[in-house]
């Protein structure tokens, strides 16, 4: 009986916290991709709770009913080999659940790997996010600016983050906009996101990358398109241009605050060409194979500095 109460109490605590006043980051989406994921998560939590409760109920029932202290001393448990029907049900029901979840999973996977729902027609903002020990560099090739450790984004427009790394594998993650994706040294991965409304968000590297990993975070500011344009203009008016020398200095291992530059490092230190993980990059992936040699040689020159 103790067990039962403990488990009930546990389930209620979890449920209370999950649906509590202070919503958990992942379950408090601010963009369509995170919404898809949060819906999937909640749905699976409910289905899984059903399974857990069923198993708990059967367990408690048999434990109470068939414990030795309740049986007569001469009770001899029967020999039961198994029963086709019962076992078919035990296989069939999980299969149905798994099929249902598989369909959900595949559908959502294609959704999060494409331009966010409701934003299809619009021109995406392309931002190159590259990590170095233990910083994030954001390059806006179209706007011609570069920031370190913070990223400003226009709300209500699709975002295309192009991810790569100047060192260990990192993982670019803004929980409230959507799930993470790896940034690696030899290829560019693409993460499709969008913010529904202006607001301040947390972003971080989620993949362990060495001593400075814990502080490897960045600030995300979603703002209206007009504010964003204003900010871009302001940067062009006030910030200094990024030079190769300056950029190599930024790449040195350590922690830095926020900083802003005009121009991007892509001009002198381009992203690896092998382009991966974008729904529309299928055509150029063949090409990427052939480009490989050249991209590697370029990368090597980048690395000789650091």
């Amino acid at each position: 009986m103790k067990l039962k109460w403990a488990l009930l109490a546990m389930i209620f605590t979890v449920a209370a916290v999950l649906s509590g006043c202070e919503p958990l980051l992942v379950l408090d989406p601010k963009g369509p991709q995170a919404k898809v994921q949060a819906d999937d998560i909640m749905l699976s939590i409910w289905i899984m709770s059903g399974i857990v409760i069923a198993v708990f109920a059967i367990l408690v029932f048999v434990l109470v009913k068939y414990r030795a202290s309740k049986q007569s001393a001469d009770y001899e448990p029967p020999h039961i080999e198994g029963n086709m029907l019962v076992e078919a049900i035990c296989i069939g029901v999980p299969i149905i659940i798994v099929i249902f979840l598989s369909v959900m999973s595949v559908k959502s996977n294609y959704e999060v790997e494409a331009t966010p729902k409701g934003y299809e027609g619009q021109e995406p903002v392309v931002i190159y996010a590259s990590s170095s020990n233990w910083k994030w560099h954001f390059s806006y090739p179209e706007e011609g600016i570069e920031t370190v450790n913070y990223v400003n984004i226009p709300a209500g427009r699709p975002l295309e983050f192009k991810l790569y790394s100047y060192g260990p594998i990192t993982s670019f993650w803004i929980p409230q906009l959507g799930g993470q994706k790896y940034a690696m040294a030899d290829m560019v991965t693409t993460l499709h996101l969008a913010a529904d409304e202006p607001g301040e968000l947390m972003g971080r590297n989620a993949n362990f990358s060495g001593a400075g990993f814990a502080e490897n975070t960045f600030d995300v500011q979603a703002m209206s398109q007009t504010d964003f344009d204003k900010w871009v203009k302001e940067v062009h008016d006030t910030a200094k241009p990024i030079t190769e020398e300056k950029f190599n200095e930024l790449l040195q291992p350590g922690h830095l605050g926020r900083s802003t530059y005009t121009g991007t490092h892509l001009e002198f230190s381009p992203a690896p060409e092998h382009n991966h993980g974008s729904a529309d990059s299928d055509k150029d992936s063949e090409e990427g194979e052939h480009h490989h040699e050249s991209s590697d040689s370029e990368k090597e020159t980048d690395h000789s500095h650091h």
Partner: peptide, 19 residues
């Protein structure tokens, strides 16, 4: 086990991964 099934949903795993 059931949280394992949750993690197996690839889209949702983008949120669980590394956490």
């Amino acid at each position: 086990g059931v949280t394992g099934v949750m993690l197996a949903m690839s889209a949702a795993d983008y949120q669980y991964h590394n956490t």
